[in-house]
Computed example of a mutant assay.
Amino acid sequence: METNQTYKNRALASLEGKWTIGAVATLIFSLIVNIARVSITYPMDDTTGASVNGIWILLCLPLMWGNRVFFLRLIRQEDIDYGHLFDGYKDCVRIGVTLLLGCFFVAIGCVFLLIPGIIISLMLSQVEFVMEDDKEIGYLDAMKRSADLMKGHKAKLFWLNLSFMGWIILAILTFGIGLLLLLPYFNTTLAYFYEDLKAEQQIG
Score class of each variant (00 low, 15 high):
13 A>S: 08
13 A>C: 05
13 A>W: 00
13 A>Q: 13
14 S>G: 00
15 L>M: 08
18 K>F: 05
18 K>A: 12
20 T>Q: 05
22 G>A: 09
22 G>M: 10
23 A>K: 06
24 V>Y: 08
25 A>Y: 08
25 A>F: 03
26 T>G: 09
26 T>Y: 07
26 T>V: 10
26 T>I: 07
26 T>S: 15
27 L>V: 05
28 I>T: 13
28 I>E: 02
28 I>G: 06
29 F>W: 14
30 S>P: 05
33 V>K: 13
34 N>M: 09
35 I>D: 11
36 A>Q: 10
37 R>S: 14
37 R>W: 03
37 R>V: 01
38 V>N: 11
38 V>W: 05
38 V>R: 07
38 V>Y: 08
39 S>T: 15
39 S>M: 14
40 I>N: 12
41 T>R: 00
41 T>N: 01
42 Y>H: 13
42 Y>A: 14
42 Y>Q: 15
43 P>H: 03
43 P>I: 04
43 P>D: 01
44 M>A: 01
44 M>F: 09
45 D>N: 15
45 D>W: 08
46 D>I: 11
46 D>P: 00
47 T>D: 07
47 T>M: 03
47 T>W: 05
48 T>W: 04
49 G>V: 10
49 G>Q: 08
49 G>E: 13
49 G>P: 04
50 A>H: 10
51 S>K: 07
51 S>Y: 06
51 S>A: 06
51 S>C: 01
53 N>S: 15
54 G>F: 06
55 I>E: 03
55 I>Y: 06
56 W>Q: 07
56 W>S: 06
58 L>F: 13
58 L>A: 10
59 L>M: 12
62 P>Y: 03
62 P>S: 03
62 P>C: 03
62 P>A: 06
62 P>I: 10
63 L>N: 03
64 M>E: 13
65 W>V: 04
65 W>Q: 08
66 G>L: 01
66 G>Q: 05
68 R>Q: 14
68 R>S: 15
69 V>W: 01
69 V>A: 02
70 F>L: 02
70 F>Q: 00
71 F>L: 09
72 L>R: 02
72 L>T: 01
74 L>H: 04
74 L>I: 02
74 L>Q: 03
75 I>E: 05
75 I>Q: 02
75 I>A: 02
76 R>Q: 14
76 R>M: 06
76 R>K: 15
76 R>E: 15
77 Q>E: 13
77 Q>L: 00
79 D>E: 15
79 D>F: 13
79 D>A: 14
80 I>V: 14
81 D>R: 12
81 D>N: 14
81 D>T: 11
83 G>A: 09
83 G>S: 11
83 G>F: 12
83 G>D: 10
84 H>A: 05
84 H>C: 07
85 L>A: 00
85 L>S: 01
85 L>P: 04
85 L>D: 00
86 F>A: 04
86 F>Q: 04
